[in-house]
């Protein structure tokens, strides 16, 4: 199996992710409109989608640019948000044997969704994984381009109060991932802390510090609950890129 029909493996991976396109398209559109509102050019917006290719950190980067954060603060917040990909790599490395030269390619395009789909799939090969990954990459980048062009139709953004899109977007990203008591406590506590810190600290520092403090609080609150080492594949597939 697997090795006899490698050409088809890519296609099967590509289509295995296709049902998620419906969720990715509006997400990519929203990202591009938000990036435009933060003053990014088309090239800059597209470069984020093509080279960083991680939705939540792209969103936070444009939000941070809008509040005047420094480059270092943006990079550190990106690290904080994307370090979780370590877990996917660790898990994927166990269920899928990759050659040395395949690893950087598999890693570059690795996302929550691609991990979720591949981990649940019966078929596991490099080409299947690559098909899944590039399916998301293609749609994410097309949606980014479309969103930026559509955003041009919105007249005079400042007068319309379009900057409200930042808190709204993050609220909409936050609400679905808050389910347990500990998650509610971390969300409320982090919101309050960042609000308090912004009065005395400049730019992105309140967000970065709150990100670390809130996550420490969450880890402390759940210290007695066992860690789910199998990782919730459904949740991973649902979460953002």
């Amino acid at each position: 199996m697997g090795t006899t029909d490698t050409g088809g493996a890519f296609g099967r991976g590509f289509w295995a992710l296709a049902p998620l396109w419906l969720g990715i398209i509006p997400f990519g559109l929203a990202f591009a409109v938000t990036a435009r509102a933060a003053g990014l050019s088309l090239l800059e917006t597209q470069a984020l989608s093509a080279l960083v290719f991680a939705g939540s950190s792209q969103f936070s980067a444009v939000g941070l640019i809008a509040v005047g954060a420094t480059g270092l603060e943006i990079v550190l917040t990106t690290l904080l948000l994307n370090v979780r990909h370590l877990l996917y790599g660790l898990s994927l490395g166990r269920i899928l044997r990759l050659r040395r030269r395949e690893r950087p390619i598999a890693a570059f395009f690795l996302t929550d969704e691609a991990f979720g789909i591949t981990a649940r799939a019966r078929e596991r090969s490099f080409l299947f994984l690559l098909g899944v990954e590039l399916s998301l990459f293609m749609m994410w980048n097309l949606a980014t381009l479309a969103g930026f062009l559509l955003g041009a139709a919105i007249p005079d953004p400042t007068k319309l109060g379009i900057d409200l899109i930042f808190p709204l977007a993050f609220l909409a990203l936050l609400v679905p991932i808050v389910r347990t008591r500990a998650e509610v406590l971390v969300a409320v506590g982090s919101g309050a802390l960042a609000f308090g810190l912004q009065k005395s600290l400049p730019g992105g520092l309140p967000i970065l510090l709150t990100g670390v403090a809130g996550s420490l609080l969450g880890a402390f609150l759940t210290r007695r609950t066992p860690v789910d080492t199998t990782i919730d594949f459904e949740a991973a597939a649902r979460e953002v890129a």
Binding site: S56, A182, S190, G211, S215
Partner: peptide, 21 residues
């Protein structure tokens, strides 16, 4: 501990991005 920490990062960062703006 760090697996639990990572689970809460998006919750904390998104919440921190809502209130200041």
């Amino acid at each position: 501990f760090w697996i639990r920490f990572l689970h809460f990062v998006p919750v904390a960062v998104f919440a921190a991005l809502v209130t200041p703006s």
